[in-house]
């Protein structure tokens, strides 16, 4: 990861805007922002961010690579699409946020203990295994995200809820031991590998054709 990071730093020599345009999903739109701030103002989670989208876009232009990729902001997006709907320049802000988060992970700069990031990791691991989300396992791994004792405590607290769900057949405890999977797991894994390969190749090759 960090090798990848160094390579990118070398390649773009401080032109972080160009790096984002080339490598971040919908990154070519960042330059179109005119700093009106309607995205930051429209975000329901806005008060909890360190930087809103508009500030992140300005930081990208100012070459603040480390700060942007380590920012919590992109992880706070809940995909409500308020920003996209209101943006006077039609920037696909939601997608850019997800793109930034993804790129930060790739570069090994994403904030380590950011809860959303952790959840995403767990979710991805969970999904990748069998091609289906195992909700029971995902829930339990979330309980234990902050350590064993914390996990037990949470589990006990949530026990009545879990039992209730079992009673009403909203949850099957047997899922814990495997649960349902996609039919062709091997094929599924091959697909994922191929996708990763394509993306890595793309990043290595450098710039894509621009937007607008």
């Amino acid at each position: 990861m960090s090798e990848n990071n160094n390579e990118m730093i070398e390649r773009y020599r401080g032109n972080f805007l160009r790096e984002v345009e080339d490598n971040v999903e919908e990154g070519e739109w960042v330059k179109m922002c005119m700093q009106c701030g309607v995205c930051s103002g429209s975000c329901p989670l806005g008060p909890h961010w360190d930087f809103g989208p508009q500030t992140l876009f300005m930081m990208i232009r100012a070459g603040k690579r480390d700060e942007v990729l380590a920012a919590e902001g992109p992880w706070m997006c809940t995909s409500c699409y308020n920003c996209i709907v209101r943006c006077p320049r039609e920037l696909p802000i939601t997608h850019i946020m997800h793109g930034l988060a993804h790129y930060a992970v790739r570069m090994g700069l994403a904030p380590k203990n950011q809860p959303t990031r952790k959840f995403s990791d767990l979710f991805w691991k969970n999904l990748k295994a069998d091609g289906r989300v195992n909700e029971l396992r995902l829930g339990i791994s979330l309980y234990f995200m902050h350590g064993f004792v914390d996990g037990i405590k949470t589990a006990l607290k949530k026990a009545p809820l879990g039992l209730g769900m079992v009673r009403t057949k909203r949850m099957n405890p047997m899922e814990f031991f495997g649960g349902h999977k996609v039919r062709d797991r091997k094929g599924f894994h091959r697909m994922l590998e191929k996708a990763e390969e394509i993306e890595s190749a793309r990043i290595e090759k450098g710039p894509r054709p621009g937007a607008e």
Binding site: L17, R18, E21, K31, M32, M34, Q35, M58, R61, A62, R89, G210, A211, E212
Partner: peptide, 14 residues
């Protein structure tokens, strides 16, 4: 024209 400048990669800083 402003939009065109942005789309060509000119950076605008207040």
């Amino acid at each position: 024209f402003y939009r065109s400048g942005q789309s060509r990669g000119i950076v605008f800083t207040k």
